[in-house]
Amino acid sequence: MSEYLRKILYLISFTAVGVTISSAQDRPSISPYFQLQYFKNTKDQAYLQTTLTYSLNRIELPLPGMVISFYTGEKRDLPLGTVMTDEDGIAKLPLDGKVRLPFGADGQWTFNSVFDGNDTIDQVAADISVVNMDLEITLSKVDSIKKIELKASSQINGKKVPVIGEVVIIYVTRMFSLLPVGEITFDDNGTGTIDFPSDLPGDENGNITILAKIEENPTYGNIEKRVTERWGLPTSYTVPETHRALWTKTPPMWMIITLSILLSGVWGHYIFAIISLILIRTDAKRKKVNDEYKIKV
């Protein structure tokens, strides 16, 4: 399936399309954007996340402090809880197993989130359905070739079924973003393998965090697996010529030596001249005493 088609599908089925229920009064109100997403992190903890924003002068602004209600079930009638949006307009609801999630006909879960609106903000709702995917990541080293193997399966009607044809991107974590290092498409067994590049820098010890990520998949939502391994090249950064250079705090040795020689040479002569002047003065004093002595005698 092409990337483009996937995106279209995602837009239609997965992302929350804000359903605006217009209020009775004819006064200006905010019609917010509302998005519901399903996440499953590396510890296999799943959660739902909504983002509530609105557009002001073409700038997207968050709506913090709003109460979002989450539901599940075929009829979206089983309440999961309510969460208040944070300062980024995001509300997260962990699916920690307190509520048994009912499966749909195709083994999917259905979720629904609602923001009830208030005097100025319109009511919005969004829903998604997700099939639970179990993702496994295995790192192995064969003849110094580093291999990443992924295995994915889902539970449909109590049966374990391999995930076929889905694409997973492999990343490594970097300071500002994730660096993609490869792509795995699951084969008929729900597995896939790639070689990991041998020349990627890790941290000081060569540790590198590898990430397998399925993003915004129309069927499975967002799933990630991360694992840290000493597969990177150890980096050590020593600032070249840290201690003595033109542009550091401490100057190069030759500068100090040259300056000292020049200054001591010159000021030495100055001192000689000043001492001469002092001697002239003392000589004058001695002469004066002598003269007075002569007069006395």
Binding site: R174, M175, F176, S177, L178, L179, P180, L200, P201, T235, Y237
Partner: peptide, 18 residues
């Protein structure tokens, strides 16, 4: 693009490349 040379990675916010 901006990044950490030691990580051999730069990004412009959209794409990340070596």
């Amino acid at each position: 693009y901006f990044g950490d040379l030691l990580e051999d990675s730069i990004t412009n916010g959209e794409e990340t490349v070596r």
